[in-house]
Amino acid sequence: MLLIPCPYCGPRPEIEFVHGGEAHIARPPVPADVGIEDWTAFLYLRTNEKGVHAERWRHTHGCARFFNALRDTTTDQILATYKAGEARPGAAAVKA
């Protein structure tokens, strides 16, 4: 079980959280203006990164807020967590 550092509540066990899929996939502001290929990419295509992966989590049984995490999918180690809306931390933050 992962120990996940919620940016609002601190470290909590994984069972308090719900995984929210890949982070930083923005919904197109006007879907009607989006072509079929881009819409398919938005709905279905995922990076499925083997390595450092930016993903959303929701602390359902805590503060109930969404936040993002950087996790290495080859080790499951969480390298950083940050609030929703913030930019993905750079490589320096990951190493720290």
């Binding site: 079980m1 992962l2 069972i15 959280f17 719900v18 499925n48 993903e55 999918t73 080790t75 499951d76």
Partner: peptide
């Protein structure tokens, strides 16, 4: 498991 991973293991719960 709840999250995507390539580790070929999973959580005990």
């Amino acid at each position: 498991d709840a999250y995507t991973s390539y580790t070929q293991r999973g959580a005990l719960h």
